[in-house]
């Protein structure tokens, strides 16, 4: 049985797709067979970030409509043979996704995969609902600002009441906080909420803080999940997150402003 992870947020543009790509790659690299599904029908972003946009033949909707088999639609990652991508359709409209159809695809994937990562679209409408409905775990991606925190809170309410687990009276979805685009410097200047501020409002299990980082932009421009850039701060942060999710005890970092050493003070290096 696979474990189904939804990467969700409510608010748009907070880093869901970046996170989905990174953690799917991170889990696969550790030897777990992982599929990552793009639920953002009409936009199709995940395949760009994964760098497989020119290999898309069939998509998620084709599989739901039985126009293609799952094996035909799944794209095997070239860098890691444990990772598969199920792209969204760019041409269909959102109504093509149905609760039943999504359930069928997830059931079939569950037979052979260890983890299924669902990249949710923004909002709390149908697409986001379908992405979270079957989930076992939820990665709630939040930026350190009030609107994003509020939307995450709302999404948490929906997770706890409108999922399959809630409807069947099973154990609730496990909820994790991923605080992304965090800048300790701006927190200190009072321009951003701190980890503690966010936790005060959400009281969630913190899986990790991802710093605001140029490396994310570079990675998505080159179609490489940022977790593969092992030297970058964001890459390290996502590696930590995957490790913590798998039960390793890794101390948190990127929360406090880095003290510049004497060397960098003298020579002004970054």
């Amino acid at each position: 049985m696979a474990r189904i992870i939804v990467v969700t947020s409510g608010k748009g543009g907070v880093g869901k797709t970046t996170t989905s790509a990174a953690i799917a790659m991170g889990l696969a690299k550790r030897g777990h067979k992982t599929a990552v599904i793009d639920f953002d029908v009409g936009l199709r972003n995940l395949d760009l970030i994964m760098g497989c946009e020119r290999r898309v033949v069939y998509d998620f909707i084709n599989v739901i409509n039985e126009e293609a088999s799952l094996n035909q639609a799944l794209i095997k990652d070239k860098r890691c043979n444990q990772l598969y991508i199920l792209p969204a359709s760019q041409t269909r409209d959102k109504d093509a996704l149905t609760l039943e159809g999504v359930g069928k695809v997830l059931d079939e994937l569950s037979k052979t995969f260890k983890y299924i990562v669902c990249d949710s679209p923004a909002g709390i409408e149908k697409g986001a609902h379908l992405a979270m409905y079957y989930a076992d775990d939820a990665f709630v991606v939040t930026n350190p600002e009030v609107a994003s925190v509020r939307d995450s809170d709302r999404m948490l309410g929906i997770l706890s009441s409108k999922s399959r687990r809630a409807e069947q009276g099973k154990d609730p979805i496990k909820e994790y906080l991923l605080l992304s685009r965090y800048s300790p410097k701006r927190v200190n200047l009072g321009e951003m909420l701190s980890v503690d501020d966010v936790q005060e409002i959400l009281s969630l299990h913190l899986l990790g803080v991802i710093p605001e980082s140029q490396s994310v932009l570079n990675a998505s421009n080159s179609g490489t999940p940022v977790i593969l850039d092992e030297q970058s701060d964001a890459g390290k942060a996502y590696n930590d997150i995957v490790a913590r999710y798998l039960g390793e005890d890794v101390p948190h970092r990127f929360i406090n402003e880095e003290k510049k050493g004497l060397f960098s003070k003298l020579f002004g290096s970054k």
Partner: peptide, 26 residues
Amino acid sequence: TPVAEQQSDNEKNQTKIITHPIRSGQ
């Protein structure tokens, strides 16, 4: 927006106990 409940909603004068956070929109 239903909140997962620990006891029947219809019992009059029953005390309802909620142990989890009540989120925005609920």
